[in-house]
Amino acid sequence: MFEARLVQGSLLKKVMEAIKDLLNEASFDCAHSGILLQAMDNSHVSLVSLNLRKEGFDKYRCDRNIVMGMNLTSMSKILKCASNDDIITMKAQDSADTVTFVFESPNQEKVSEYEMKLMNLDQDQLGIPETEYCCIIKLPSGEFARICRDLSQFGESIVISCTKEGVKFSAAGDIGTANIKLAQTGTVDKEEDAVIVDMQEPVTLTFSCKYLNMFTKATPLSPQVCLSMSPDVPLVVEYKIGEIGHIRYYLAPRIGD
């Protein structure tokens, strides 16, 4: 028996919005410690790694490990039927071919149940190597989304350049060029408003606007985003999901010029 109940059901709705444009289907690996999802997009340019810890759920039971292959378009349709303040429970029998979503209104007066067919996905389990990153940049997630959106008007690529002075985002195209520099902030009232640059070595890498903009669909999950870069390895874009876990996007750089 698997059962995971989340009083703050809106988090699950937001997680779905953050992955459904990148992945058509994915396996939810449910274990005693929590739920893991790891999948590359069809073109193998990006990877989504979602981690939801058992402790973050209001009730969590997983008697034996189960892998639930889900069509994310269908799951997204179902989660759209939940209100933002609904309590969401996912449950499945040990060897079931369906998963059930239960939405309870806060006053318990409305209870909706949706059963969805599971899929047999032949997906490889991927191991993510431990990587030391030269630059780790924390910035407000809304600011990052704004920068990606603004620079997308200029071209298909965004160059992210990190030095000890701060971080520079730039783009160039037919209409001209754009440069946005963010300096490390001094004292801020709220930690989430800070721009923090932890740099060992300066790094400049080029990334696809299209993918960065898809990652920013996770913005409602967290006020802060963390970018980790090293030469010749994928960029990591991480959003925390409340106290429950995180979503990490890995993106292969664009090469040459």
């Binding site: 590359m40 993510i128 292969a252 090469i255 010029d257």
Partner: peptide, 14 residues
């Protein structure tokens, strides 16, 4: 224009 790299090879299939 730069070419898009891929992730194949970075992640180990377990």
């Amino acid at each position: 224009t730069p070419t898009q790299g891929r992730l194949d090879g970075f992640f180990k299939v377990m």
